[in-house]
Structure formats: C-alpha cells, structure tokens
C-alpha cells in the first residue's frame, strides 16, 4: 500500500537569508557518483553573485560588530541544528560522494565537530592574532585582529560537506561575511546546510550559498570591487591564476588552492587568512 506520491525537494540558492531561485531561471541536473539523477539544483548566474555580494555587505556591519561571544553562541547553535539533521546529511553526503554509510557518517561527524571547534575560536582568536606590542616610548601599543570584510569562498569540489564546513566556518567566526560557491557536481549538502543556517539565529546575508558552474560564478566574484577576499579552495589549477589576477585589481586577500586533507586537523591557517590587524597607540600618561 505504498501509494503515497513522492515529494521532491526543490533546492534553492541562499542569499540574504532568503531562498531565491536563480535570477536566470536556470537549473542543472545533479547526479550521484553513479550517474543517477538526484535533483535539480539552481544554476546561479553572475547576477546572483552580485546580489549575494550586496547581501553580504549589508550583513557585515551587524555581524562584525556583534560580540565574539555572541558569534560563538550562534555558531554553537548551528552545530546543534546540524546534529538534529545528521541523518539527512549522512544520506546526502553518501549519495554525493559515493561513500558507504559508515564513511559518510564519519564525514558528517567530522564536519559537525569541526564547526564546534571553530565556534570555540570566536573569543580566542584575538589572543593568538593580537596582543600588546613592546615599544620604546611612553605608549601602549596594541594590535587586534579585525575581519577583512566580504569573503568569496569557492568550496572544495571533492569534499561536498566536510570541505564546505571547513572553509565557511573559519571565515565567519571572526566576523567576515561569506559568499560560498558550492561544489559544482555535488551541491546538495551545501544547499541543505543553508536550511540549517536559516533556522539558527545566523543573521541573513552572513552566509550566502550559490550553486552552479564554479568558473562562471567565480570570475565576477574575483573581479568584484566590493569583495575583500577570495578563498580559491575549489578552483582548478588552470583558472586559479586568472582569478588571482582579477582579484589583484582591488587588492583582495587571496587564499591559493592547495592539496588539503579535509579530514586532518585544520590548524588556524584559514582562521587567520581573513583577518586584518588594527594597531593602536595609546599614551600611558606620565
């Protein structure tokens, strides 16, 4: 008696806290590792990228101005929501990457653990990236890390969920806002992550997620004058150079692609890559 109609899910972009379709109206077919159709994902255009930058810029003031403690709490909350949707993510990761259930479970658990790990850094990063500097004069000289601004992130192609989490979390925990371009062939875990973000107190626009052809979306983002940094984790070797050239126009911070083992301990590299140092001199008095 299984005559229920199956309910297909319409995957959408995540821009400014809303779930729009692509401005272009396009979608593309997403298949699992064996070529079986899973769903249609929106094929974002450069105008979606532009809208996402506007949303990210708008969210930046509030997010970077929130207390580190508050940002940390919101990231913990996201981890709680991820935990609640664990089974869904395991199924999606298993489909996307052709993994067995146990391996997919390991990936998702690692991703949630990583999110929690980064959440803890929110009020600790200032201690390792800033501090009091010794100066030869009657001054205090203090350096403190400040978020860079709007960060475009090309999520890793091969690791659809753990890799994605490992590039988004370090950027936002310090107060940046992010436009993430999901893995081209397996964007579904990323689009589902958007649903988690939307229901966990994260202000709209702090994370924006686009799916589509990475090369098509990356070019306007790299050249965009209002993007302050770009993480090229998901760019292929050929296009990375062009993107870096385009990014040089407004002196974006560029994180070059490398061979990263996403399951390994990430260290603080990505955390520190999108920070600027603000140094103030303060007279000590007589």
């Amino acid at each position: 008696m299984s005559d229920r109609l199956s309910v297909f899910k319409t995957y959408k972009l995540y821009v400014g806290g809303k779930f729009p379709r692509s401005e272009s109206g396009r979608v593309y077919e997403v298949t699992d590792s064996k070529g079986t159709w899973l769903a249609n994902a929106p094929l974002a255009s450069r105008k979606d990228a532009r809208d996402a930058v506007v949303a990210a810029r708008k969210a930046f003031g509030g997010w970077s101005g929130a207390t580190a403690y508050n940002r940390g709490q919101i990231l913990y909350r996201i981890a709680e929501m991820l935990e609640g949707r664990r089974d869904q993510f395991i199924a999606e990761v298993a489909d996307a990457e052709g993994l067995s259930k146990s391996k997919a479970t390991a990936q998702v658990d690692a991703a949630i653990d990583r999110w929690v790990w980064y959440a803890g850094w929110s009020d600790k990063v200032a201690q390792i990236a800033g501090g009091a500097n010794p100066v030869a004069g009657p001054y205090f000289n203090l350096s403190s890390p400040e978020p860079t601004g709007v960060v475009a992130v090309l999520a890793p192609q091969e690791s659809s969920f753990l890799g994605l989490v490992s590039v988004i979390a370090p950027a936002i925990v310090t107060g940046n806002t992010v436009i993430a371009v999901a893995s081209e062939d397996s964007p579904l875990p990323a689009l589902s992550l958007a649903e988690v973000l939307a229901t966990s107190d994260l202000p709209g626009g702090v994370v924006n997620i686009l799916s589509g052809r990475t090369a098509e979306i990356a070019a306007p983002l790299a050249a965009h004058q209002d993007v302050n940094a770009i993480d090229l984790a998901g760019a292929d070797a050929g296009s990375a150079k062009d993107l870096e050239t385009a990014a040089a126009d407004n002196l974006k911070r560029v994180l070059r692609p490398g061979t990263t083992d996403w399951t390994a301990d990430p260290g603080t590299d990505r955390l520190l890559a999108f920070l600027e140092t603000k140094t103030v001199w303060h007279p000590m008095g007589v």
Binding site: R50, R57, P220, A223, H224, D226
Partner: peptide, 14 residues
C-alpha cells in the same frame, strides 16, 4: 556606470 565601462562590479567604496 562603472560596471558598464570596466566590466567588473563596483562597490560603495568607489
């Protein structure tokens, strides 16, 4: 206008 003349999106910093 800047977008049309340069081909890249401009921002409020400019």
């Amino acid at each position: 206008r800047q977008k049309l003349s340069t081909g890249r999106y401009s921002g409020p910093d400019y």
